[in-house]
């Protein structure tokens, strides 16, 4: 794996190289060359299987981390390619022409994080949420508890009690009098 990384270093400016396991390495690359690296790995380095495209919200840095995880089925190792994009007007070049499944990941990221992938098939169609008009819910600033309290009414019987006080009142009702 180290040989491969050294080879890739010659063509791409890799940073934050992390050999997480014998068969799993993460590298960081700039946004402009991320898909070039992904394409190179697919076409020349045997990474024919695309595992996933994921996003991590580093709200404190004002960035989204996109991770393209590729797998080399014959070499039996994985390469995670990280790239960082701005949270404001987040947008990334679409990779749907590389593997057909990527369009689904990009559609989900558009809905859940608000990251645009111009040209990706059906990227503007809702994926899971229907009629959603709040901020994309997987962004860190989206508060699920507040949303729930604002949107849904409390149902009877769903209240919570302090277990110690509640059991005391049930078991020893006379003590309260």
């Amino acid at each position: 794996m180290e040989q491969l990384i050294n080879k890739l270093q010659k063509s791409f400016k890799l940073s934050d190289v992390k050999h997480q396991r014998e068969n799993l390495t993460f590298v960081t690359v700039k946004k402009d060359s991320a898909l070039d690296l992904v394409t190179h790995c697919r076409d020349y380095e045997g990474f024919s299987h695309f595992v996933l495209l994921s996003c991590v919200d580093w709200i404190e840095d004002g960035k989204f981390q996109l991770t393209y995880l590729l797998n080399n089925p014959s070499g039996k190792f994985d390469l995670g390619i990280r790239t960082f994009i701005s949270r404001d007007n987040a947008s990334m070049t679409s990779a749907h022409l590389l593997w057909r499944q990527i369009a689904t990941y990009q559609r989900e990221l558009k809905e859940m994080y608000g990251i645009d992938f111009p040209g990706s098939p059906r990227v503007d169609e809702s994926f899971i949420l229907e009629g959603w008009d709040e901020i994309p819910p997987m962004r860190r600033e989206f508060d699920t508890k507040k949303y729930s309290e604002d949107t849904y009414f409390p149902r009877e019987g769903r209240g919570s009690n302090d277990p110690a006080t509640y059991m005391k009142s049930k078991l020893y009702p006379d003590d309260e009098k």
Partner: peptide, 10 residues
Amino acid sequence: VGYLHRGFEK
């Protein structure tokens, strides 16, 4: 899909 979405990852 979405009929069972409960936002587990979030």
